[in-house]
Amino acid sequence: MPTPHFIREIRESIGNQLLWMPGVSAIVLDDQDRILLGRRSDSGEWSIIGGIPEPGEQPATAIVREVYEETAVHCVPERVLLVEALERVTYPNGDVCQFMDVCFLCRAVGGEARVNDDESLEVGWFEADALPAMENFAVSRIKQATEGGPTWFEGMGGK
């Protein structure tokens, strides 16, 4: 994934120091309750759709933008699924980041799922019982969405 311009500017000042950043992700369902996934170009792994809000951008607006940019699917957020501080990540260049992810349950309202930028190798709709292998990040969010539980926050019990 390309690093947003505003982050490159911050990195010029702080170097590789820890950068605390907002992140958004989505479980996007179609009218058959299939789940929209993308196979990431940076890792080759299947995952849910997500990204980084622009400065001043509201999280719900950011996820609608990210879903469209990556998949050409138009969606509307229905509710917040979870809010979670993720583990620190150290990138190969030495940059250290930690994200606060706000994950939304979204409903597709238009568009055809396709690769729409260079962040994905493939995009597709999957039945909940026929998902490809994915990291726990995506699996736990899909589980939260499909089980229909209340919004999850750290300290409120297991996901």
Score class of each variant (00 low, 15 high):
residue 11 R to A: 08
residue 80 V to N: 11
residue 153 F to W: 04
residue 53 P to D: 08
residue 159 K to W: 15
residue 24 V to F: 11
residue 37 L to C: 10
residue 107 R to I: 07
residue 50 G to A: 07
residue 72 A to W: 00
residue 131 L to N: 04
residue 156 M to Q: 14
residue 158 G to F: 01
residue 100 M to Y: 09
residue 69 E to G: 07
residue 82 L to Q: 08
residue 137 F to W: 15
residue 139 V to A: 07
residue 119 E to F: 10
residue 73 V to H: 06
residue 53 P to H: 05
residue 141 R to L: 00
residue 10 I to L: 15
residue 102 V to I: 13
residue 95 D to V: 13
residue 41 S to N: 10
residue 38 G to V: 10
residue 157 G to A: 01
residue 40 R to V: 05
residue 127 E to R: 15
residue 94 G to W: 04
residue 89 V to C: 04
residue 91 Y to M: 00
residue 121 L to E: 15
residue 51 G to H: 02
residue 144 Q to E: 09
residue 96 V to Y: 01
residue 40 R to M: 14
residue 15 G to E: 08
residue 57 E to N: 12
residue 152 W to F: 10
residue 98 Q to E: 14
residue 8 R to C: 01
residue 56 G to V: 01
residue 141 R to D: 10
residue 145 A to F: 05
residue 59 P to C: 09
residue 64 V to R: 14
residue 28 V to K: 08
residue 119 E to Y: 08
residue 107 R to W: 04
residue 51 G to V: 13
residue 75 C to T: 05
residue 40 R to I: 00
residue 60 A to Y: 07
residue 37 L to P: 07
residue 77 P to V: 02
residue 121 L to K: 08
residue 1 M to P: 12
residue 77 P to W: 02
residue 129 D to M: 04
residue 142 I to Y: 00
residue 152 W to N: 03
residue 157 G to F: 07
residue 70 E to P: 03
residue 8 R to P: 01
residue 134 M to Q: 13
residue 149 G to N: 07
residue 25 S to W: 01
residue 144 Q to T: 05
residue 140 S to P: 06
residue 84 E to C: 02
residue 6 F to Y: 14
residue 99 F to I: 05
residue 103 C to H: 00
residue 1 M to T: 10
residue 133 A to K: 06
residue 107 R to F: 04
residue 79 R to K: 15
residue 152 W to C: 06
residue 27 I to V: 15
residue 53 P to Q: 12
residue 135 E to N: 05
residue 157 G to T: 12
residue 47 S to P: 01
residue 54 E to A: 14
residue 25 S to T: 09
residue 104 F to D: 04
residue 99 F to W: 11
residue 131 L to G: 11
residue 94 G to P: 02
residue 112 E to K: 13
residue 113 A to Y: 03
residue 28 V to W: 08
residue 47 S to E: 07
residue 30 D to Y: 08
residue 133 A to V: 00
residue 66 E to Y: 06
residue 23 G to A: 15
residue 27 I to N: 00
residue 1 M to R: 09
residue 97 C to V: 11
residue 97 C to R: 12
residue 148 G to D: 08
residue 80 V to C: 04
residue 60 A to V: 05
residue 85 A to G: 08
residue 84 E to L: 00
residue 97 C to A: 04
residue 42 D to C: 08
residue 35 I to M: 12
residue 14 I to E: 07
residue 33 D to G: 03
residue 104 F to T: 09
residue 54 E to N: 13
residue 101 D to E: 13
residue 99 F to Q: 07
residue 148 G to R: 09
residue 82 L to T: 14
residue 59 P to M: 03
residue 138 A to I: 04
residue 74 H to R: 14
residue 39 R to G: 07
residue 111 G to A: 09
residue 134 M to P: 12
residue 35 I to F: 08
